[in-house]
């Protein structure tokens, strides 16, 4: 293996942030990067589906409008089922979150693109925002009754001494688990795809071993199908958990 071929397969390169326009405001870097570009593309994808495809407001929907309606009813059903009718006030937020993460995940599956959700700061930003809404709305709606969330029902007082700290720790770790789940899934998937892609390149450059190159290629094909599932599933899991946490803010007694 000479240094040239060793440098070629780099599974980390796809997560590199490329600054397309560099700028700084009050010491905060606001550079427009490839991440910003792909966030914009994901948002644009959602807008295309939800705004432009529904512009005709047809009674008998076309393909685009049917997809928009399906997505709407899917998320609305999910929010209503998990967080109840009162949870529907968060429907626009959960919908935007789900649609944005879903489209970002799917765009990231195209070769040579950037995966917005494979950056921990993005998923962590979403998770912290969700928990901030949960805490703020929980206290706004229930006052100090929101703290009942940490006191499980019908448990002896002696056990509560142990249980309440555990509940608090579990609550505090929610933003971490929520963000790391999505981030790690996307990161691991993209690294795996890139590594197997690197195997193909390495085998092709290794003389007679090139005959084995189709094996990792087939593996990529299978993995890609899995990644497609993961992209949709993780967007769904992220929004389902968001609904579950919002439900805690609405009904902390449960």
């Amino acid at each position: 293996m000479n240094p040239e071929t060793a440098a070629k397969p780099n599974p980390i390169e796809q997560f590199e942030l490329v600054r397309l326009w560099e700028h700084e405001i009050n010491g905060v870097e606001v550079s427009f990067t490839n991440a910003s570009l792909y966030m914009l593309l994901a948002a644009l994808g959602v807008v295309l589906l939800m705004v432009f495809a529904t512009s005709r407001k047809a009674l008998t929907p076309g393909r685009g409008q049917a997809a928009a309606e399906m997505l709407y009813e899917f998320v609305a059903g999910m929010v209503r089922q998990i967080a109840g009718e009162e949870g529907m006030r968060f429907f626009p937020f959960v919908f935007s979150l789900f649609a944005f993460v879903l489209i970002a995940n799917l765009i990231g599956l195209f070769p040579y693109t950037f995966s917005v959700t494979s950056q921990i700061i993005v998923t962590f930003g979403f998770a912290v925002f969700v928990m901030a809404i949960v805490v703020a709305y929980g206290f706004y709606r229930n006052g100090f009754g929101f703290l009942k969330l940490f006191v499980p029902h019908g448990v002896p007082a002696l056990v509560l001494v142990v249980l309440i700290p555990i509940e608090i720790i579990s609550f505090l770790s929610r933003p971490i688990s929520l963000s790391v789940r999505l981030f790690a899934n996307m990161l691991a998937g993209h690294i795996t795809l890139a590594v197997f892609g690197g195997f193909v390149a390495l085998l092709l450059g290794a003389g007679a071993w090139a005959a084995l190159a189709p094996v990792p290629l087939l593996a990529i094909t299978a993995l890609y199908a899995l990644e497609l599932l993961v992209a949709c599933l993780q967007a769904f899991v992220f929004s389902v958990l968001t609904c579950v946490y919002l439900n805690d803010a609405i009904h902390p007694g449960h």
């Binding site: 942030l17 600054r19 905060v28 870097e29 606001v30 550079s31 427009f32 990067t33 991440a35 910003s36 966030m39 914009l40 948002a43 959602v46 807008v47 939800m50 705004v51 529904t54 407001k57 047809a58 929907p61 409008q65 928009a68 309606e69 709407y72 009813e73 429907f91 626009p92 937020f93 919908f95 935007s96 649609a99 944005f100 950056q119 700061i121 993005v122 930003g125």
Partner: peptide
């Protein structure tokens, strides 16, 4: 920092477009 700034900006605009325009429209259609 650059990712968070643009995320807030882009997701904020997306949220406004969804909550003010797209979702009420779909609700009306349905």
């Amino acid at each position: 920092a650059p990712q968070l700034v643009w995320l807030v900006l882009i997701f904020g605009v997306l949220y406004l477009l969804m909550s003010r325009l797209a979702l009420p429209r779909v609700a009306t259609i349905l």
